[in-house]
Computed example of a mutant assay.
Amino acid sequence: MTYKELKIQVSKNAQVPVEVADKVVEEVFHTLKSVMLRGDRLQVPGFGVFYTKIRSSRKVKTHGEIKQLPSKRVPVFAPAKALKKEIESNTF
């Protein structure tokens, strides 16, 4: 599903004009981004948690030489148990 398709689907499901759904979807993602940039967590019951964590510095070997990669903050999504169970029980 594309971002545009997501907005159209939200519009249909919520029975609102596409313009309204467009604004709502954009605001949800903008808010999620703001929360994560602050280093906070966004917990959605039954869906999961969005947060950031620090990845430690580490050594990697590339083309025969060893490099030291610096530590950095990375985005993380941890699905809720309910979502995991629902996905696992969904048959193909």
Score class of each variant (00 low, 15 high):
Tyr3Ala: 15
Lys4Pro: 05
Lys4Gly: 11
Leu6Glu: 01
Leu6His: 00
Ile8Ser: 09
Gln9His: 11
Asn13Thr: 12
Ala14Lys: 03
Val16Met: 09
Glu19Leu: 15
Ala21Gln: 00
Asp22Leu: 03
Asp22Pro: 02
Lys23Val: 14
Lys23His: 09
Lys23Pro: 08
Val25Ile: 00
Val25Glu: 01
Val25His: 00
Glu27Cys: 06
His30Pro: 13
Thr31Asn: 08
Thr31Ala: 10
Leu32Gly: 02
Lys33Tyr: 03
Ser34Glu: 14
Val35Thr: 05
Met36Arg: 01
Met36Asp: 01
Met36Tyr: 00
Leu37Asp: 07
Arg38Cys: 10
Gly39Met: 09
Arg41Tyr: 10
Arg41Glu: 08
Arg41Gly: 11
Leu42Gly: 15
Pro45Val: 04
Phe47Gly: 04
Phe47Pro: 00
Gly48Met: 03
Phe50Leu: 02
Phe50Tyr: 02
Tyr51Lys: 15
Thr52Cys: 05
Lys53Leu: 08
Lys53Val: 13
Lys53Phe: 14
Ile54Cys: 14
Ile54Arg: 15
Arg55Met: 09
Ser57His: 10
Arg58Lys: 00
Lys59Arg: 12
Lys59Pro: 01
Lys59Val: 06
Val60Lys: 00
Lys61Asp: 09
Thr62Met: 12
His63Pro: 04
His63Glu: 10
His63Gly: 11
His63Cys: 10
His63Met: 13
Gly64Asn: 07
Gly64Leu: 05
Glu65Val: 14
Ile66Cys: 04
Lys67Phe: 15
Lys67Arg: 11
Lys67Leu: 13
Gln68Pro: 01
Pro70Thr: 08
Pro70Ala: 09
Pro70Gln: 04
Pro70Tyr: 03
Ser71Glu: 15
Lys72Thr: 13
Lys72Ser: 08
Lys72Asn: 12
Lys72Ala: 09
Arg73Thr: 14
Arg73Tyr: 05
Pro75Lys: 10
Phe77Trp: 05
Phe77Ala: 10
Ala78Arg: 07
Ala78Asp: 11
Pro79Arg: 00
Lys81Met: 02
Lys81Tyr: 08
Leu83Arg: 06
Lys85Phe: 07
Ile87Ser: 00
Ile87Gln: 02
Glu88Tyr: 12
Ser89Pro: 13
Phe92Arg: 13
